[in-house]
Design a protein around this nucleic acid. Structure first.
Length: 423
RNA sequence: GUGACUGUAGCUCAACCUGGUAGAGCAUCUGCCUGUGGAGCAGAUUGUUGUGGGUUCAAAUCCCAUCAGUCACC
């Protein structure tokens, strides 16, 4: 296999770079977008449609998949690629974000003075969740998250972290950061043990975590008890909340663990856009040049363009798919991507239309005359409006199709501009 | 033709019996959503209570007339 991450061009203008991440299930051009497939599906799209749109990568969520249908079920058929039919570059989130979102709900309840059953308890060892689905107690430790993710079988795995809520005190943020660092060491150790075990009967491959881990999954149902292998790569996650000293400290620590990739977490959790971008900016000088950098949970169109400049290679964000289901569609008509001199290239709001608005009822124009996607070449705004007002399933599918196509074209454009050293 | 029932916001209805500033859901409009939320939340707009009289300090409400619709019977 080719190098996991290969950079072909560094911009002369910023820290942006052109690269490619390679896995056994496919490659991802960088900067690149990873579409949300939380519960094992890019909502509303078949894998065939995903391929037709040109989507290269999907992001699954360990917490959701462990809850339903369960990691062992997925392992039985040989991993999430086979199980879902999404045979593309896949990333799995660790479940760490759910610490944040469940804890946030708990904090809201605490503020309101409500009594409610324990949702999440964070300790040095890990996190215990009360499942929102059936009340069962679910325990996540770094080791369990690794085990689950190995079973799920995505190509990229996230270390188990604590996504700190906002606003957090410096004291809490530092505690949470230290917990995340300890958990990262345990994730790395767990995978090293697993690798040694797996390699003991095999000729050792090139050493070091950066070569990925041989993951063997017992698959009796499909392989008569033989082992299925896949290569998986671990990303350590930087935390530190909105504090410059903590962010830099965390970046140094995480980068030093030599995981194949680096992820930035704990951003876009309620802080302003400026605060969010500042956090990435503080870390820019600490990020590795030879390893891919992923920004968790970001972002909106304008965020992406600005953050690529700090050296971010990949993004995962629910926005294009979630907004699509709410009838908010990206549009390219006034494509201002040519104007790359200003830091604020685009006003995010100029790039969206709400197709549910009554004004589109009698609008028989194409959604976006500058877009060549299946939706824009075949349907009118009136029809899309109609589908949404009637909550017809096809509406969600067409909107998702268009928004993800838009993202692919946006990243095409971004890479083109980096090659020309215009970003 | 006779009788009964119905008529209140764009739509479906509540309030009528027991008179006291006419409400709700949906729709419409505005805003929110970044490691998922096919949803939700926050806010706004909306009325000659079919029409005309009467009683009353006060009528969607009680009384009379009238119009329209539905049903039943001729």
């Amino acid at each position: 296999m080719k190098d996991f991450f290969r950079v072909s061009h560094f911009s002369k203008k910023s820290k942006a770079r052109i690269g490619e991440i390679n896995t056994v299930h496919g490659k991802l051009k960088t900067p690149g977008f990873i579409a949300a497939a939380t519960k094992g599906t890019i909502k509303t799209l078949t894998p065939k449609q995903v391929n037709e749109i040109g989507i290269e990568a999907a992001c699954f969520n360990t917490y959701h998949l462990v809850t339903h249908p369960g990691a062992d079920i997925i392992a039985k058929v040989g991993g999430i690629h086979k199980y879902s039919g999404l045979n593309i570059f896949a990333m799995s989130d660790s479940g760490g974000f759910q610490v944040f979102s469940l804890a946030r709900n708990q904090r809201k309840a605490d503020v309101r003075g409500e009594e409610q059953p324990l949702l999440v308890k964070i300790s040095g060892d890990g996190v215990r969740f009360r499942s929102l689905h059936d009340g069962q107690l679910i325990e996540f430790t770094p080791e369990k998250s690794m085990e689950y993710q190995l079973k799920i079988g995505a190509d990229i795995n996230m270390a188990f972290d604590e996504c700190t809520y906002y606003p957090a005190t410096h004291e809490y943020a530092e505690d949470a950061m230290n917990r995340t660092h300890e958990w990262l060491k345990r994730c790395v150790q767990f995978r090293a043990r697993q690798r040694n075990f797996l390699l003991s009967g095999n000729p050792p491959r090139l050493g070091g975590e950066s070569q990925g881990v041989k993951n063997l999954l017992s698959s009796p149902s499909t392989n008569n008890g033989q082992l299925v292998t896949s290569d998986q790569f671990l990303y350590g996650i930087i935390q530190g909340a909105t504090f410059e000293d903590l962010r830099k400290k965390s970046a140094e620590f995480v980068v030093a663990q030599n995981t194949p990739g680096i992820a930035i977490g704990g951003v876009s959790v309620g802080e302003s856009k400026k605060e969010m971008r500042d956090q990435v900016k503080w870390m820019a000088d600490y990020l590795p040049k030879d390893r891919p950098v992923h920004l968790l949970g970001v972002g909106q169109i304008d965020d992406i363009i600005d953050l690529v400049k700090y050296g971010v290679d990949t993004f995962d964000c629910v926005e294009p798919t979630r907004l699509a289901r709410m009838g908010t569609l990206y549009k390219m008509s006034n494509n201002k991507l040519q104007m790359t001199n200003k830091s604020q290239i685009l006003n995010d709001k100029d790039l969206k239309i709400d197709i549910t608005r009554t004004e589109y009822k009698n609008n028989f124009e194409k959604l976006d005359v500058n877009c060549n996607c299946y939706v824009c070449t075949n349907f009118t705004k009136s029809y899309l409006h109609h589908l949404f007002k009637q909550r017809e399933i096809l509406g969600y599918t067409l909107a998702t199709h268009h928004n993800l196509y838009f993202m692919e074209k946006l990243f095409d454009k971004i890479r083109e501009l980096i090659i020309k050293d215009q970003i």
